[in-house]
Amino acid sequence: MKQLAFCLAASAALAGVGTAPLAAAAGGTSVAQACQGTIYLTFDTGSQSQAELIGDVLKRQNVRATFFLANEKTVRGDYSLDRSWSDFWKARVAEGHAFGSHTFDHVYYLRDAAAGKIAVKPQFGAHAGRTEEWTTQQYCEEIRRSDKRFQELTGHHLDPIWRAPGGKVSPRTLAAGKSCGYAHVAWAKAGFSGDELSSEAFPNAVLLKRALDGLRDGDIFMAHMGIWSRKDPWAPANLEPLIMGLKQKGFCFATMREHPDYLIKQ
């Protein structure tokens, strides 16, 4: 039923009407046929320069997405899981989005180390920039830290999913996440937004066309909520055109809770 709701929203956008008339016909087959596939939009925290815009676009387009949260420094001078971001995250919870861990200190996996340990480098926090060797239990606890903070901010737990910074994993880190109940979420090759790349070499128009041409049913799409290094930010130019373009192709949208490989119970 959740995916059908997204199909209704997509159909309404194409028809230029509200969802109420379509909802009345939810039991029919013609509405369901409007959904030619499902795309899973996901966003990792970053500089948060585009956070409010992303929230506004998703709400306006009636699209649910999945957010992966780390406590990263933002353009406001605070951190993305500080109390100052509580209202923002509460609003996204109320809108029905899904949420996963991105490790609390945005910890990069470097390599598997001796004695079953994992070599890592936190980007933020007390040990920022240091190479450390963690046990799988320490790695698991780092994933959980984001959940604990999210609960403090919103009263809600994260969903049992996580994404490694940079997408860098090994069987050992995947097993560490699984040991404490978290499944790793990567992204499709066509789902790489390119918002980390140079805007001179990869202008927004090129990235938008690549996504619209390449995305297929079931693909997971990944972008950030702001990238410090990109001079021409991705989201203002591309997010709404991407969603509208995918709707025109007949795609619907769902969170990772509805993904067939995860199917998270609420």
Results as ranks from 00 to 15, higher is better:
79 Y>S: 06
132 E>W: 06
140 C>Q: 13
42 T>Q: 04
113 A>K: 05
98 A>E: 05
90 K>I: 09
113 A>S: 13
84 S>C: 07
126 A>P: 11
150 F>D: 00
134 W>F: 12
56 D>W: 04
32 A>C: 06
130 R>Q: 15
134 W>A: 06
131 T>Q: 14
103 T>Q: 02
75 V>P: 02
59 K>E: 13
57 V>G: 05
47 S>F: 03
128 A>G: 06
109 Y>L: 12
30 S>I: 12
141 E>C: 09
112 D>P: 05
31 V>T: 10
32 A>Q: 11
74 T>D: 07
105 D>C: 10
33 Q>R: 14
32 A>D: 10
41 L>V: 07
134 W>L: 15
106 H>A: 02
130 R>N: 10
62 N>Q: 14
140 C>K: 12
34 A>D: 12
132 E>D: 11
83 R>F: 07
153 L>C: 03
59 K>Q: 13
130 R>T: 07
49 S>P: 07
135 T>L: 06
67 F>A: 00
152 E>W: 08
60 R>E: 14
90 K>N: 07
116 G>S: 05
136 T>S: 14
82 D>V: 05
86 S>E: 14
145 R>N: 11
134 W>V: 08
139 Y>D: 02
139 Y>G: 02
63 V>T: 08
119 A>T: 12
113 A>V: 06
107 V>T: 15
135 T>S: 15
45 T>V: 08
54 I>R: 01
38 T>F: 14
62 N>A: 12
134 W>S: 07
123 Q>D: 11
40 Y>I: 06
139 Y>H: 11
36 Q>C: 11
130 R>H: 11
93 V>Y: 12
96 G>A: 09
76 R>L: 13
58 L>R: 01
130 R>A: 12
94 A>H: 12
122 P>V: 07
109 Y>A: 11
58 L>M: 04
131 T>L: 07
51 A>C: 04
89 W>C: 00
57 V>H: 04
62 N>Y: 00
53 L>D: 01
95 E>Q: 15
150 F>P: 00
149 R>F: 00
106 H>D: 04
55 G>V: 06
110 L>F: 04
89 W>F: 04
92 R>K: 14
141 E>Q: 15
123 Q>H: 11
73 K>Q: 12
68 F>Y: 12
86 S>L: 05
52 E>N: 09
149 R>P: 01
74 T>I: 04
145 R>C: 08
